[in-house]
Design a protein around this nucleic acid. Structure first.
Lengths: 129, 129
DNA sequence: CTTGTTACTTGCAAAAAGCAAGTCACATGC
DNA sequence: GCATGTGACTTGCTTTTTGCAAGTAACAAG
C-alpha cells in the first residue's frame, strides 16, 4: 500500500490538519484526561492528591503527564515553597475548556457502561493563567 | 507511597467506577477515535478508506482497532463477499453516540490549535446495529 | 534519631506502536 | 495464459511507551 499522504500540507510535526487528530496528540492516552479531570472536577492540586485517585496512576506517568500538560499550556505549576521544592498545579483556561470533552465522555460512559457512577461532587475549578 | 485504592469496589477489570476512566479504556489512545471519526463524519466503510486518511494509520494498528471497536460494540462488521472475505464497517448507535466527544474535541482544537481545519464535509452517518 | 511524608527520579521488564514485507484471492490487461 | 495490480490483512522485528518497584532528597514529627 502506498503512502496515503504524499504531500499533505500540515504544520510541522502535525499528523494532519484535523483538529481531532491534534487534540489526540495532546490528550490521546489513558491517563492525561484523568489528571485533567482531577484538576477540573475534583479540585486537586498536589502530586499526592492525583496519586490518591482510585485509578492509582503510576508515579512516573503522573510526573510525565504533569510535565506535558504544563508544556502544552493546560496546566500551571506554582511553587509554594522552595526547599524542598513543592508545587501545586492549577488548570488554565485552555485546560478548563476541555470540560465539554470530559462532559461528553462522562455522559457516554453513564449511558453505555454499566456500573459506573459519577464522582461525588463537582467543584468549580480554580483557573490560573 | 501506599496503594491508593485498598479496596475500591468497582466491576472486575475496571480501573475505577468513574465513567471517564472507563471511556478512556475503550477509546483512550491516539488512533481509535480517528477511526470513529472516519466512520461517523466521513462516511468511510472499508479498510482501504481508513488507510487513506491523512494520518496514515499503520495497517496492523487499523486491523487491531477495528477488532477492538467491534468487540466493544461500537462498530458492526458486515461481509459483502465471501471469497476472498471482504467486509465493510459501520458505526453502531453506541459508536455514533460518541459524536459529542468528537464535537467537543473538534471545537477545542479549532480554538486552541493554530492551523487546523475542519474536515471538508460532515455526512450523516449510516448506523447499523 | 528513627520514622514518616511529599515529590519526585531511576531501572528494568512487559506491552504497545511503527515500519516493512509477505500473503491470499481474485480482477484486469495484453 | 501470465504478469501486474488491488484490497484486506498478517507476520516479524525494532523502537517507544507503560507499569511496577525501589531509591532519593529535604524536611517534620515523635
Amino acid at each position: 500500500m502506498k503512502k496515503a499522504n504524499l504531500e499533505n500540507p500540515c504544520p510541522e510535526g502535525y499528523r494532519s490538519t484535523c483538529p481531532i487528530a491534534n487534540v489526540l496528540d495532546i490528550v490521546g492516552d489513558k491517563w492525561t484526561l484523568l489528571v485533567v479531570r482531577d484538576l477540573l472536577l475534583s479540585g486537586k492540586h498536589r502530586y499526592g492528591e492525583f496519586q490518591s485517585s482510585p485509578e492509582a496512576i503510576p508515579t512516573n506517568i503522573l510526573a510525565d503527564r504533569l510535565k506535558r500538560l504544563e508544556a502544552a499550556g493546560l496546566v500551571k505549576k506554582e511553587f509554594y515553597q522552595d526547599n524542598p521544592p513543592r508545587a501545586e498545579y492549577f488548570i488554565t483556561r485552555k485546560g478548563a475548556d476541555l470540560g465539554p470533552v470530559l462532559q461528553a465522555m462522562g455522559d457516554w460512559g453513564q449511558k453505555y457502561i454499566p456500573g459506573v457512577i459519577l464522582p461525588q461532587q463537582f467543584r468549580l475549578p480554580e483557573i490560573r493563567n
